[in-house]
Write a protein that binds this DNA or RNA. Sequence first.
DNA 1: AGGGTAGTAAGGGCAACGTT
DNA 2: AACGTTGCCCTTACTACCCT
Length: 452
Amino acid sequence: MNIVPGNKIDLINETKVHLHRVTYYVYQDSDGNVIWPAINFINFIIKEGNNDSTIETYRQAIRSLFNYILDNKRDWMDINDELLGVYAEWQLRQSINNPRWRGDTNTTKRNINHDYLAPVYEFYFWAQKQGLHPSLLGVQPEQGDKYQITSALPLRDKAKSKKDGPKKKQLYPKSFSNCGESSGGPSQKAEEWELDELNDYIRVNYKGYTRASLMLMLRIVDQTGSRPITLSGFAKLQFRKETVESELMNTSDSILDITPIIQKGDNNMPIKFPLTLVNGVVSFIENDLKEFINTIGLNKHDGHLFLNEKDGKPLSAQEITKIFSAITKKLNWPKGKSLYAFRHRYANEQMDIQASINDELGFTKEENAVALQVSQNMTHKNHKTLLKEYLESRTRHGFKTKVYQQELMLQELRAQKEYQNLETLKALELAEEQRKIVNKLRQEIERLKRVR
DNA sequence: AGGGTAGTAAGGGCAACGTT
DNA sequence: AACGTTGCCCTTACTACCCT
């Protein structure tokens, strides 16, 4: 078998078919023979109501497995413990030969465990349950027929509780082991000057609604630590003047809780908006968004805050990250450093601020305690309700501290700076347009003079 | 040619599970 | 109880391919 580096083995065809409003994936070999087990298994995974991402992972694994099987001129029922090990090594070579491979074999091994081997075990377990083969997968018996693939998967379903069930190593014995520690490494964090650089770029290169929305998105991420998916979930109604005012009257602090329509996973936690930022959003809605909706037509607007500049449809999380990735690429920022870097920046800043607040109030400065408080602001899930209540009351005290007030003032100053810059540029652009018109008129007058 | 979309590998977060 | 591992999901960066 020869694998040319960078060349993908493509012996299996996957076709997406829509039938009676249901999506099926049809698998065929290069001669056009239909591979029914693959089709039925993926169909089963879809019907189980798995997440789209999970379905994608399983499809990837099935394509890989049958590519291996067809490449070695085997039948799918041939696979046993030994061949499964060979397959794992084969997939490792495939991944390493891929031009996009980043050079970390241990990481690749872990990913193969997660994204290929586990789904393949599940595939053979499913085949066993379907009765496609009598002794395909199971725990090896003391006597009698041996199973081809050793796995405790059949015991998993029988176990009364997950605790009584088989251990992971018994479920997927052929997984790579000793893959090393997960590659920690500090995450990419943006600095203050990088925030300025990005803002400047947007200010100069974009106009109108797009410019205003991009700058607001950046400001929201920087000041609330929102994820892109959170940005895509903000709606105009959440920032209605009356709602904002009554909310602020009731709570008497300078923070407004906004719960986006969409969040990561089944999160249902509010984002904490500082008052200055809320004002920014309200003015964005009243000036830029209103104007933009007028140009695209009100009937097309479904209430979202951030819209596609072309068709007025709500921006998805992926579109948002794509827009910012394109900009940071032009600014020559390193790989992996884009909009998300401002979420990391927020996390780091909050840790410092919270630690100072705790210090001033005489609370513990221990990293764990501070991290817990911050994780609340970052909408990380956390089931320790008692602790949560306790922390919230502490955070309320925190609003009165010097450090917190200073931070608020800083935010306001930053916001004012942004606003001034934008106004200046708008005035310059207007002047430039006026100058062009005057020039044109002057030329026209000259022309008329010559004609006479 | 360039914009849009789907696919792919890497990598990070969360929560449950496991081990010490 | 503290720390390590695993499964699932999500994000990022890139490629391939389609359409216009």
